[in-house]
Amino acid sequence: MADIICAIRAGEGSRAVQNAAIRVARAQNDGLLFLYVVDQRLVEARDESIRPSARAELYWMGRTLLRIAVARAHAAGLRDATWAIREGEVGQEIAGAVVEHGARMLFMGASRHAGGRPNAALSLAERLRDTIGVAVDIVSPSLEDA
């Protein structure tokens, strides 16, 4: 069980979202779960011959990124920080993890500049709020950081 889930992928907002999740978890004395989803679209986009290797490498990357995140949480004084990897469609898997762990809050990162595009993270957040009723916090790195 984890009260807070932080979905990570080493994008532009990754550091900011991890820091925010760690801060809130510490303040509320909650358990924090870092989640990495091996995106099935990234796997299926490969030629058939290398799909198993691509999947294995994405798992490798996920394990590495999650360990960095947990180490940061521990360094910040949050002992109750763990990680999990899932595989599938990103939105569905995040929702599945929230339900399975009974999480009350979900942290997700967003890019610094959406460049006029509809913000994908925001639309996913809305969908998750509507479907599973979890509180979602979208964190972007501040523009001054650019």
């Binding site: 932080c6 979905a7 990570i8 992928r9 994008g11 532009e12 907002g13 990754s14 979202v17 995106d39 679209r41 990234l42 490969r46 011959s49 290398i50 198993p52 290797s53 691509a54 294995a56 490498e57 994405l58 990357m61 990103v90 939105g91 995040i94 942290f107 997700m108 990162g109 967003a110 890019s111 959406a114 460049g115 595009r117 994908a120 993270a121 639309s123 996913l124 957040a125 964190v139």
Partner: peptide, 28 residues
Amino acid sequence: DARLAALDQLLAEDGRLNEHGPAEGEDG
């Protein structure tokens, strides 16, 4: 070799992912 080929493709796509923006919910 399969691992290297997969990494090669992921590396090549890394720039593109940044360029087109993250896929849904993937930027954290």
